[in-house]
Write a protein that binds this DNA or RNA. Structure first.
Lengths: 261, 261
DNA sequence: AACGGTCGGTTTATTATATGAACCGATGGT
DNA sequence: ACCATCGGTTCATATAATAAACCGACCGTT
């Protein structure tokens, strides 16, 4: 593996749960020699991608990221464009809506919007990576990736997260085919036992599926009528966001979503 | 120089003016061999820090930056916290307000807020780096950096940007000392000939000066009374933002700003 | 106050990795 | 038909990354 990749992997070690990491910890987490890790962090710090804080000299993500992200958003307003659609989606469905992006082969939550309709809501504050096989977003994205990518994912060991998690590659392949033929994905407690969710894929200006938008609700609130509302709202939100991104929906999706309306 | 630094420098080549860069261009700009540049870009792309777009296969900043920046803001709400203060500042002074951060030894504009009071306004949409010697923000920041850093900056060749740009290191040293004793900095047409600006330093939770907030106006609108308003508003905004950042003002600044009120 | 363990950081010889010139097929303008 | 340039690849060479051992500082225990 290249040295640059090793450095960039360090950035991915920072999570909402552990935003500050010491040198030795980081070396352990990354499986690197402490000296190597130190050099990499120093170079990252020199450019402001990480910074050191406090007397313990721990590292955290740096201010340069703000600038670079702003520059990216100025050219491709991914987050900014999706935010209002997501909020409307949460409002309309009275549940939690969230959008995830495919980044470096992993599915990462980017924005979420909550509804104030219920006292209990699904939260995903500390979630950094979504498992493809156990979430509706994951299945929605997987259904529209090249075969090679899908097979790579299914070839890995897929953790059983709840009693309902499907982990058999064959069954998953079938479910993914079903997602393609329905135009949306659904997960019933596969990620967290009480949470049901539905998701649709999103397409960017490059023509590929680069993310998904989903609505997650307590399983107990998922009536058949509510599922219809969520499904319809998702398809509408998916169309809007894809359009705002300058992307276009595959023609079969257009047909499916039109029929569902 | 380390390989990682070379890769990170590539990220800094993207600007508002040229957000898409081809492989050969990038190699030229970075002074790298094309093959080397290709490898570095490939590694960056693998992690989503850049992505390739269109038939020309040009590169642009990638979606991973959004995620990392969001993670950073979640821990240290730098931009989010400053935004409303900046907007109020623009409103109150009826001019353009902007905030810059010290990143990797360079002064980078992060947010700006415009007032709708005048038909003509100072814009800085395409500005990626501010020169220390020719802007009020630069002088404000420089005044509160370690001597070594200040001398490094002054030792460089300082470009004369307008007829009014001060480029003599000795004179600049004196002006910087004056900034320290006044608690604010001012630039009259040193960056763009018709633009006058004033700025105050900002301090973060680590105790250092990590940026500045400034108000820029057309020189023709800079009455003595307006300058008083701007100066006072800046000091107030500087106090607020520094507090929101969890920082604290040096005691001499507190005194100076209190006297000015 | 002496101890053992950990911290962040530095040094060094060793070796793996980055490098650059030349080359490739494709593309586009003259 | 031509030439220049594009993005990308190859491979021998040389440079830059690596890992172990070490350093002083710090911290809670004994």
């Amino acid at each position: 593996m290249g040295t640059v990749s090793k450095a960039l992997e360090l950035l991915d070690l920072f999570t909402r749960a552990s935003p500050l990491i010491g040198l030795s910890d980081m070396a352990r987490l990354a499986g690197l020699n402490k000296a190597t890790c130190f050099r990499l962090l120093s170079e990252l710090a020199e450019h402001g991608l990480v910074e050191q804080v406090g007397t313990a000299r721990e590292y955290r993500l740096g201010p340069a990221l703000l600038r670079l992200a702003a520059l990216r958003e100025a050219q491709v307003p991914t987050r900014e464009a999706a935010m209002p659609v997501l909020q409307a989606l949460a409002q309309r469905t009275s549940e939690t809506a969230h959008l995830s992006l495919l980044i470096g082969g992993q599915l990462r939550p980017l924005v979420h919007a909550y509804s104030s309709a219920h006292a209990t809501r699904v939260t995903l504050d500390d979630t950094d990576t979504l498992p493809f096989h156990a979430t509706s977003s994951g299945l929605a994205v997987l259904a529209f990736q090249p075969d090679a990518f899908r097979e790579t994912v299914l070839a890995q060991t897929l953790p059983r997260l709840t009693r309902s998690t499907e982990t058999d590659p064959g069954t998953l392949r079938a479910r993914i085919a079903e997602v393609r033929s329905l135009g949306y994905a659904e997960s019933r407690g596969g990620y967290e036992s009480d949470v049901h969710s539905m998701a649709v894929p999103l397409f960017d200006a490059l023509g590929g599926c680069s993310g998904a938008v989903a609505v997650a609700a307590l399983g107990s609130r998922m009536s058949e009528q509510q599922r219809r509302l969520i499904r319809y709202s998702l398809m509408q939100a998916g169309t809007e966001i894809t359009t705002l991104w300058g992307g276009s929906l595959p023609s079969d999706i257009v047909t499916l979503w039109r029929l569902a309306a």
